[in-house]
Design a protein around this nucleic acid. Sequence first.
DNA 1: TTGAAAGCGCTAACAC
DNA 2: GTGTTAGCGCTTTCAA
Lengths: 372, 372
Amino acid sequence: MTSPRSRPSDPHAAASSDVSASSASAPLRPAKRMQMGDIARLAGVSIATVSRALSGHPAIPAATRDRITELARSVNYQVNVGAASLRKRDVKTVAVCILVDRLQSISDPFILSLLGHIADALDQRGYALLLTRASTEQPDTITHMVENGQAAGVIVIGQFIHPDHLNAPMLRGVPMMVWGAALPSMLYPVVGTDNELGGYLATRHLLEQGCQRIAFLGEHQHPEADLRHAGYRRAHAERGLMPAPQLEINSPFEPGHTRQRFASWLTQAPEFDGLFCVSDVMAVNAIAVMAERGIRVPHHVKVVGYDDVAMASHVHPSITTVRQPVDLAGFALVEGLFAMLQGQRPDSTVLPTVLMVRESSSDSVEDGTHAP
Amino acid sequence: MTSPRSRPSDPHAAASSDVSASSASAPLRPAKRMQMGDIARLAGVSIATVSRALSGHPAIPAATRDRITELARSVNYQVNVGAASLRKRDVKTVAVCILVDRLQSISDPFILSLLGHIADALDQRGYALLLTRASTEQPDTITHMVENGQAAGVIVIGQFIHPDHLNAPMLRGVPMMVWGAALPSMLYPVVGTDNELGGYLATRHLLEQGCQRIAFLGEHQHPEADLRHAGYRRAHAERGLMPAPQLEINSPFEPGHTRQRFASWLTQAPEFDGLFCVSDVMAVNAIAVMAERGIRVPHHVKVVGYDDVAMASHVHPSITTVRQPVDLAGFALVEGLFAMLQGQRPDSTVLPTVLMVRESSSDSVEDGTHAP
DNA sequence: TTGAAAGCGCTAACAC
DNA sequence: GTGTTAGCGCTTTCAA
């Protein structure tokens, strides 16, 4: 290929994405694809024998099996999975569908983390991962991936404001598992943490730290956030308290919105000395907004986040947060889906929730774990 | 977890506490899958006509086309893409392969962001996205996805320490595009930013801010990081300076390592008043480590990161960084891949690089763009 | 304009 | 053990 292109003298003018302009150098060789018949001919056996040898059929003696396997590898032959799936009527692919409510792009690192662990679990089972998105406007993607044969089942990440939207695929017989909060109206199995407990632990911790007026930053309409809010109320109620409505800041998950809402709330905010955010990303944003106004964390306000994404322990001050065990989650989602694929009806799973106490909520505590 | 039959083998079984959903409620119906023959029978036409109608073949009059389309939708029929691909010998799927050098899990938010934009561009083209990973031990994944017919081409994110590993798939005729640095030895087209320029802009900015001793935090073996380091040297050289070797901290991208290396470097560090990190995640970590030791940013040390991930502008202090236009990148990668699929030989693309000046590098500057 | 028929690349009875 | 054969669900000549 040509050597790396010369640098644009002015980087701004260099929106030079004219990729399609192809240099007519070495023609990309068509790469004639091998197929089973070729291997059969080369090995002097029938196609059926090659198929059996390559799939380790017991009837084929080890000697020929090895010979054929070796031959196949030497010519870079790979069985066409599409054709095999068609014939076997069995797709070794799972769709992972990320729900986006307002067509915003995925951005929360928590999602990537969960996705990574799902990928691990799927890999381990020999399944491929088809990544898709769905919005409230196009909720059918989930169903389609299975009905058009691209995937055997679907793992859904995130929930719509109205979780019932997800009942439809389930009713149509789509094998699916959902990450999120378990609500009574759901027909599908979910894997998640105990959000109410998480909210409770976070809030109780703040109360124990001496906070008197704890604000809540999150979106009520969102099922998980709402449960965390319930935990927030319970922790208060347990002490005979009731948080003032003015302390509740209703904000969607997107960072941009969070900053704006929180900043404008601050201008007319009642006094507060604690803040519980329904995600770490929100917490980071809130802390930054406060810092700009001279409000110091944890000195003036103690903060607790949610998720325990990597960032939470990497920023300064490090963020006290409610941990969601993303590794177990990925595993449980995949296990559950395979159970469904075998016709079972897996239960929903509630994963353990732990409060990670860090700097943002206490002036002198080392990073560590605090069990409920 | 009390399911009778389907207890997912939870590695930390004791940890799983509660179960909240139903067990034998909704009967998971087998969901007899429709196929084209069924639609044909229902519509009183042949399979061929259904196929043509559904794919908008011009020979079919609009009336019958609509009738069949409507019928298909009313019974939730979806064309089996696997079978269609097989027949058409044309897979509408692209594999996105994330390279992991040390089998670590993906974690940098930059990756997720890029992935999201690739997904957008692919969606728009009507292609599905197969997510895969490859490590130095298993670099063949890239080739396999195409050779076994699962994907038409591959987009590779990240580069190995030895980018030449990626030449093999290219030589085998695998259509592929790579995100990363363009090096002379590469046979494949890449999309990336001008890393040398980025490093230069970052360092020059620090010098302009009055920094005298600027440390470099990054991994030399990594192609992109190394180019940024070259820019770092050039900015110095331009002023007749040469950074002391002790100011170079060689650290892999993983946050854990970064903290450790940087912290131990700090204990015996020479004086420094500037720090250029090859990623924003590293910058955030470094700032936190310094904060723990009472080193304030930007007061004592001015910091510049790289990537401009969302977090960079959300933390406090917000991070001055070199922006990588992830939206253009996703687009260019996909465009380039499609060019290859059409037998063209796209050039490598260098995307514009801009320095985003924020709080971490100047005591009193508002968030904004600073042209080079 | 529509239908019949021949495969796409592979697997699995069912023979031998 | 191995080969023959009949499809998997669809698209597309080719004929009508």
